[in-house]
Design a protein around this nucleic acid. Structure first.
Lengths: 351, 351
DNA sequence: ATGAAAGCGCTAACAG
DNA sequence: CTGTTAGCGCTTTCAT
């Protein structure tokens, strides 16, 4: 019979603090004190209680504790796209740092669309998370802001919003660094590449850095290519154009700074397909330094983000809020970036 | 003064169901009924209650609900390494499928070591998760099994253990497919490559498939290379050996089936570094078909896993257990794999 | 040093 | 159709 299994397992629900108490012959409070490691419990009682805990396999119910304590140790983490290696790495670091401080991470992957982003945040809020970490926020809509208004501390990692603490790399600086590198090795026609569907605040800052470096060097024109891989066409200033044309002709673009490694690698693929040689005909710089960028066959020159440092600062910032060590207007912490030179960039050929 | 801010936000804690009730002039139960969408509430009252909910910005406290209901809608997901693109993709799919059924995913990334794996599971259990999904289980120790024994439903995705439901690709079949492909295009000396630190049950099954195909074709010897990238040496049957030597000499290995794409790509990098040409001197087959494998410059022949299907089946399986639609001995569901041929494999050169 | 009692916010009978 | 009541498992004063 099937019920045999049930009788064997005795349909035993999880033991509660009460079960432990009566097993050890003490009161609930004493058990609670032992569990929480508070002083003021005699060694003998403590031992007896610990024995009972082990014997029954007691496991404190976090839900009940958090309900009565009116606070949780759960951190919500909203990730734009966990399949993007950069965010996957960040998610990993954030989880590790959170765990180190006693927080449990509750991830919530959003397709990047603001609708599921909102739904995700709503769920997190219903779970009474102690705070929320945003890894790239797509929606600029203030629906989100309204939902979150003063509910819980919020920290934005690698993205910008004025209603929470920010921990980010200096995107503008990164854009400058990338562009200056291209200028230094001799490029004159340098374009910025971004993928419209994934544009966010970081994008704009990186573009700003690009623009600044370009103008400072007296170069131009400032060119922003909008491209959705793997299409053959793109757009510049809203005008549709054949992507290949951009890299052909006398006035051709010889170097591209892409908004992030994914875009850079996609462009490299496109170039390969079209027999545009990288770096001879076209130099490419990315942003993030994902593991793939370092692979010998990809060898992408890129701007590296210190992922572990970002994660640590983010968790520190939100923990400071949660644990009331800091309150006040939003803080911004910018960390440095560095250029990693690989084989996707070289001086332009004089062709 | 700092307290100004506080007075502005009125130190207002989250409104409770009671606040809504008194605001709408009804009882808690009625509000509860409205929130849960139960019938038997007059349209007028429902409207009044909904108004109050909106006005107060009421958000049900999931913790309290779950405490009284004695069950949660949280699913624990244990991931070996979220930075591995295959698991990142799987995690994403699992989260999406879980959400579609009303479950919230609580991820827990473990460095692959069984210690933090155990700690992670412990945390999940304390949160009274309704079930646990394992994406690659590293530890074979039965400490884990003991901790989980009959506590919650468990499903293993892409890994094997006899104490829970299993949803996996047919690893043996995949190993055969990969090896047969190599045999078919003319290879005779074919080795299996695995990374000792990341070995698991899947590894063994894939190796079994490799072995089977090899023996069936009357080929040999069965060779299992243990390698920790990016080292220059490896080991075969416990004997340390120069990795390059394996691919040199008259009796050299001309093709390798790697336990997963990561290993395959690492080997490709090694080959590039050592001027061993792929596929002319060495053919490589991977397993998983991660996005990187499809990139033009990598072009790895590999065994594709149907990620979405795996995720869907896994969530369906665990939901069946949780929602008591199924109880009984562990079930195993194997889904098919397919060979994706790219440029990392070719007939051996007659050199 | 230990115990008793009052909730945390919610659901789920059961009355009215 | 709506209200009353009794907990879920735990922490936290306050007594003893």
């Amino acid at each position: 019979m099937e019920t045999e299994r049930d009788s064997r397992t005795t349909v035993r629900r999880q033991p509660t603090i009460f079960d432990v108490a009566s097993n050890a012959g003490v009161s609930k409070s004493t058990v609670s004190n032992v569990v929480r490691g508070l002083p003021g419990v005699s060694a003998a009682t403590r031992l007896r209680v610990q024995g009972a805990i082990l014997e029954l396999g007691y496991r404190p119910n976090v839900l009940a504790r958090q309900l009565v304590q009116q606070r949780t140790s759960t951190l919500g983490v909203v990730v734009g796209d966990i399949a993007n290696p950069f965010f996957a790495e960040m998610a990993k670091s954030v989880e590790r740092r959170a765990a180190a401080r006693g927080y449990t991470a509750m991830f919530c992957n959003t397709g990047g669309d603001s609708e599921s982003e909102l739904a995700g945040v709503e769920t997190l809020l219903q779970h009474r998370v102690a705070g929320i970490v945003f890894l790239r926020l797509s929606c600029r809509s203030n629906t989100m802001q309204q939902a979150l208004a003063h509910q819980v501390p919020v920290v934005f990692v690698s993205c910008t919003a004025d209603w929470g603490d920010i921990v980010s790399v200096d995107d503008v600086k990164g854009g400058e660094l990338a562009t200056e590198h291209l200028i230094e090795i001799g490029h004159r026609r340098i374009a910025y590449l971004s993928i419209p569907e994934e544009q966010d605040q970081s994008d704009l800052s990186r573009f700003a850095g690009y623009k600044q470096a370009l103008l400072r060097a007296g170069l131009g024109p400032v060119t922003c290519i909008g491209w959705s891989p793997p299409a053959d066409h793109a757009s510049i200033d809203g005008k549709k154009i054949d992507l290949l044309d951009i890299f052909s002709g006398p006035d051709r673009v010889t170097a591209v700074f892409a908004s992030y490694d994914g875009a850079a690698i996609a462009l490299q693929e496109f170039a390969d397909r079209m027999n545009v040689r990288v770096p001879e005909d076209l130099s490419i710089v990315g942003f993030d330094d994902v593991p793939t960028a370092g692979m010998a066959r990809i060898a992408l020159t890129t701007i590296a983000q210190p992922r572990e440092e970002l994660a640590e600062l983010a968790i520190a910032a939100i923990a400071d809020r949660i644990e009331q060590r800091f309150s006040g207007p939003p803080r911004t912490q910018l960390v440095g970036v560095s250029l990693v030179t690989r084989r996707s960039t070289a001086p332009p050929s004089s062709a």
